[in-house]
């Protein structure tokens, strides 16, 4: 993902632009994030341990997730 990985949705929340299957970007973003917090084991979905998809501060939405942290911004 070349552009900024998040955008503000209509409710002002930070949506991940990569959707739910951009495993590479999710890992890259988490790698740079200061607030990454690994979720409990049963909620881990990415093979890379450090991935936004495995972060407790991601809140899944129908197509992607919103980030509830400030570590990447």
């Amino acid at each position: 993902m070349e552009s900024f990985p998040f955008y503000l949705d209509s409710t002002g929340q930070r949506q991940f632009a990569g959707g739910q299957d951009d495993w590479r970007s999710a890992a890259q973003v988490a790698d740079q994030c200061l607030e990454f917090l690994q979720d409990v084991d049963e909620e881990l979905v990415a093979d890379e341990p450090r991935s936004c998809y495995n972060c407790r501060l991601r809140r899944w939405t129908a197509r992607s997730f919103t980030c509830m942290g400030d570590g990447f911004f």
Binding site: D39, E43, L57, R59, A62, M68
Partner: peptide, 10 residues
């Protein structure tokens, strides 16, 4: 997962 459903993260 839906905006009308309160949930923590999943």
């Amino acid at each position: 997962v839906h905006p009308d459903i309160p949930y923590t993260s999943h």
